[in-house]
Amino acid sequence: MIRSVILGSGSALPKRCVSNAELAEQVDTSDEWIRERTGITQRYIAGEDETTGTLATAAAQAALDDAGVSIGDIDLIVLATATPDRTFPATATQVQAALGGKGFAAFDVAAVCSGFLYAMGTVDSMLRSGMAKCAIVIGSETFSRILDWEDRTTCVLFGDGAGAMVVEAQDVAEDGPGLLATRLHAEGEHCDLLYVDGGPSTTGEVGKLRMKGREVFRHAVTNLSSVLVEVLEDAGHVPGDIDWVVPHQANQRILDATAKKLGLPLEKLVVTVGQHANTSAASVPLAYDVARRDGRIKQGDLVMLEAMGGGFTWGASLLRV
């Protein structure tokens, strides 16, 4: 059977790391307040010379190097982001050019924190249908550009970064590697719970992030636990079969509550929210790359990727490494 197999991964972070203590010098907050409510201790903030595109390019090149392939082997780039370098063209096209690619399809996907799952689902469909053979899937964000730095309930939660995977269509055995199942969802009726108050067609300005945290938390735990069950059922597995869950790194409390609802031990969760904060579409591939490079995720492991973001959008993918 044809499956989308991950050949390699990569990630990139801005040069500047901002601790809670440093943030407390600029915002009415404290290290204790942030840690207690979110589990976050630091985040990375992009400088003037760092953009969603430059971070995405660095992560993509790292993934190519890890996979042992070159841009000449790639015939598709899909980049998930809510903070593109420009309204258009797609940031993916800039990444393509920066890597030395030419002629093949490159486009952006916008599903906020679920963006990487949506991008992976899109790429999986295109690879299995034969529209492409080898792709780079990227999640990259510079959320620091759309934060209201006077709103301590939101600005402390986010950071910048990028993660990427090289994915190839391969004919594998039933028990072989690759993407086993994906489920994606959206409920637009809740769009006013997590959004940016601007846009080209409404205000003509970028706008700032706004969030009703308690409502988002409630929906996140319910939606994430249910979509994980759906994907496991589609793939013929149960929670106990999972070696690792790589969740969207939004808040330690959400991670804990979701694991508890599914009966998953916390030791099976890859958690990087403390070091990176919420990097939106970048958080899942960034966390995956960290865990694979430090030896936690190994060949043959069954790994669940999951995320939920503004929209609301949410989704999950189960893969065999």
Rank of each mutant, 00 (worst) to 15 (best):
E32Q: 14
L147F: 02
Y288R: 07
N278E: 03
Q252N: 01
E22T: 05
W244L: 09
Q94D: 13
A111E: 07
R35C: 03
G47P: 07
P84A: 05
I77V: 14
Q42I: 01
F158A: 02
D73H: 10
G176F: 01
A56H: 10
W149E: 12
R16H: 06
N223K: 11
L79W: 12
R320A: 10
N20G: 07
I242G: 04
A135N: 11
L286T: 02
T122Y: 01
G101R: 02
A58P: 07
E205T: 12
I146G: 05
W149T: 07
L318I: 03
V156R: 11
E306H: 08
A281K: 06
Q42T: 07
M131K: 14
V303S: 04
R3F: 05
K212Q: 12
A316E: 06
I77D: 12
I71H: 09
T153P: 06
I2Y: 10
V321R: 15
M120Y: 10
R86L: 15
L76I: 04
Y288G: 00
D160K: 06
A67H: 05
V69W: 14
L286P: 00
P285H: 10
T54I: 14
I297D: 05
V290R: 12
L184D: 04
D289G: 01
A21W: 12
R3W: 04
A235G: 12
A106K: 08
R16G: 00
A80S: 09
T153R: 15
E189L: 09
V156M: 10
K15W: 03
A186M: 14
R86S: 07
K208F: 13
A181Q: 08
C113L: 08
G161E: 00
T93F: 11
L179N: 03
Q42A: 14
W314Y: 06
E141D: 12
H248Q: 05
N251G: 00
V270T: 10
T87A: 14
